[in-house]
Amino acid sequence: MPESSSQPERRHLLSIGDLDRGDVERILETARALDGVEGKLPTLAGRLVITLFYESSTRTSASFELAAKRLSADTLPIRSAGSSVDKGESLKDTVLTLAAYEPAAIVVRHPQVGSAQLVAKHLVTADSGATVVNAGDGTHQHPTQALLDLYAMEQALGRLEGLHVAIVGDVLHSRVARSLVQALGLVGASVVLVGPPALVPRGLAERSMEISAIESADVVYVLRMQRERMLAGANYVPSLREYTARWGITPERLRPGQKVMHPGPINRGVELDGRVADSADSLVVEQVRAGLVVRMAVLHDLLAQGVPAGEIAGVA
């Protein structure tokens, strides 16, 4: 079938940088069409989706696997623990091995920046046509998280264009923040990064060390404070206690109606007050729900681009 996409060359989703605005809008439209569809779709019947996870994950691995199953794909989840990785197999050899099963897609999460690119490179070595979906490579990119965040924002607020989003916390070590800043830029939303100076790098977006900078935001996007970054001697902030006092998101710091998001897992009482997480303005559960339909939409978009999104419900 001829490809109708604006980017017929695109094969992998390694970074939000691989997408243009049209791609993002098409994926969100596909997700809307998939949202609420019951049962399985036959889209990827007979095709194999491998999820290769070198890092612990609940949401991302579960939703990718479920998304592939909902599209009738065969799934093959591989975790580094208990696999040949434990025996010292290199990422290259693992990819060459998996390529022999002729997957349609490999979804990969890995703790190091550049791992998704390496997987894509060695699929070429293996003469495989498989698509790579980056499910997080170190502190670099997590593109499907940014797409599902856009979807949840649009569902809650009715638009993306012109939204103002404050991203709060450890931007430096956050692949989620990097992808989200790029994605928000693509859809015409504005961003301010708020947090301790050492954890908010220059050059990504407007930055502020004052928590009051969240006042004008439509959405306050709270990043996880990774405890390992806060060990004594790391000195990004003097202490976790001081971080929470200055940048923790509490009911008192929010306006009614301001939406709050968090990619999970939450450290309650550290970056996010439990009362906020459980409030009506929290979109945390919506984000998890969006994760499933958006990952279905991404797999659909990459692997079955010829099928227009409008026909999806009809196919069901």
Binding site: S90, V113, G114, G138
Partner: peptide, 11 residues
């Protein structure tokens, strides 16, 4: 070749 044929961060 083995040492460099790894993710950027590990190289």
């Amino acid at each position: 070749r083995e040492e460099k044929d790894v993710p950027f961060e590990a190289a």
